[in-house]
Amino acid sequence: MSVQQLSVFVENKQGGLAEVTRALAQEKINILALSIADTTDYGVLRMIVDRPEEAAEILKAQNAAVALTDVLAVKMPNHPGGLDGAVQALSKENIGIEYMYAFVCPLPGEACMVFRVEDREKAGKVLEDAGYLQLVTSDLYER
């Protein structure tokens, strides 16, 4: 169980990000979640979109460097300590988190969290055992 994440290389220069967002907007790709990892020279834009494979092709046709990665996405209960419980559970099992970001779940009243970890299967199981519900792609797009 996983969600496909689309990443794009964005050079730090005027209009770099705009090229990506414009291309996706023109083809009516909906961006559900987004985070940017920044370095001095470039950024890696990571997105959860409604049609990841199609979006990847659109960007490739514009000469962009893209990658599709399976990431773990879970629902977060909307109360204090909701996130802490998940992070503690992963830490206890020595699962390192490479990066994570939150987004508003299409399911009403709840938040979602994307985790990028080395062993996705194991991390998924750990979180399920701790009571966190994993999301799959279809949860995100169908209401």
Binding site: Q5, S7, F9, E11, A37, T39, Y42, V44, R46, A65, V66, A67, T69, E98, Y99, R116
Partner: peptide, 15 residues
């Protein structure tokens, strides 16, 4: 130039 071969969602890998 960044290439598909070099690119990854992980900044650590790119670095």
């Amino acid at each position: 130039e960044m290439t598909p071969k070099m690119f990854s969602d992980s900044v650590k890998d790119i670095e």
